[in-house]
């Protein structure tokens, strides 16, 4: 479904991704782990189409479509969802209004009918309840004055509503206490199924106790240097990144 081949990218002329090969079949959850500065966030931004990240080589296709040529909103409509590491605040934009606009934009692009206010609210309230969020959150401005945990939950709320085929979770665990982490993980796990894949980007193994991946990849210095099953995460937790990176260097 998501197929990345030889992907290289740079920011301000500095090469960050140095040739990524990664395939995520439908229904699978993959984790990408790596030390700070490895290029984890860059990978998620390149896949979601953020400006300032220049792809210099390679391809990325999603259900056969070249996503690198698409606008961010087209990628969203195609079913790619990025949960931001630092969700952006939108003062003056109501959360419910934002959600509805996004949802209807995506539905329109997918050729589905738009939801009216009543239908939308019904869905939104149900989602809010499932995520143990207060309904008040729908009335507030998007992420404005939200705690770190609330912001992350708001990301998961959006994901639940937009029903993507592929979720990119960029360090969703950072800044979360254990309860919030559990709720977020439950939100992701609830979405799991044959039509949902996820790329979980994280520094720590902790999140992977709750969202158990099918595959784990280690990203270092812009390349995937090792791939394996969930046990690879445990190994990293025990030995740290230095060991694995060293091994990879030796092997090369």
């Amino acid at each position: 479904m998501l197929e990345i081949k030889g992907l290289t990218a740079e920011i301000d002329g500095k090469q960050i991704l140095k040739g990524i090969d990664l395939t995520i079949p439908q229904g699978e959850v993959h984790a990408v782990m790596g030390p700070n500065g490895a290029g984890k966030s860059t990978l998620s931004y390149v896949l979601s189409g953020r400006e300032g990240y220049e792809v210099t080589g390679g391809t990325a296709t999603f259900f056969g479509q070249d996503i690198l040529a698409m606008e961010p909103e087209e990628r969203a409509a195609a079913g790619i969802f990025l949960a931001f590491q630092y969700p952006v605040e939108l003062p003056g934009v109501g959360n419910a209004n934002f959600l509805r606009t996004a949802l209807n934009s995506v539905r329109r692009a997918r050729g589905e009918g738009e939801l009216d206010a009543v239908q939308f609210l019904k869905q939104a309230r149900a989602a809010v309840k499932k995520l143990a969020m207060s309904e008040d959150m729908l009335k507030r401005n998007v992420n404005v004055g939200f705690s770190g945990g609330e912001k992350k939950r708001n990301e998961i709320l959006q994901m639940t509503m937009l029903q993507p085929k592929l979720a990119l979770l960029d360090e969703t665990d950072s800044g979360l206490d254990i309860d919030a982490l559990r709720i977020v993980a439950e939100g992701v796990n609830a979405s799991r199924g044959p039509n949902f894949s996820a790329l979980v980007i994280t520094h720590y193994q902790r999140l992977l106790d709750y969202i158990v991946p099918d595959h784990v990849h280690v990203l270092a210095d812009g390349r995937i240097i090792r791939s394996g099953g969930p046990e690879l995460a445990k190994e990293l937790e025990a030995d740290g990144y230095a060991g694995i990176i060293g091994e990879a260097a030796e092997a090369a």
Binding site: R50, P72, E73, L82, F84, V88, G92, F98, S105, Q158
Partner: peptide
């Protein structure tokens, strides 16, 4: 902010309008 809105599927010109309206709020 523009990217955030677009990454949620909102087309660019509509995203701009939302932000302009928010600016005026």
């Amino acid at each position: 902010q523009l990217f955030y809105l677009r990454s949620r599927g909102v087309p660019a010109d509509q995203a701009r309008m939302i932000l302009v309206r928010a600016f005026l709020t």
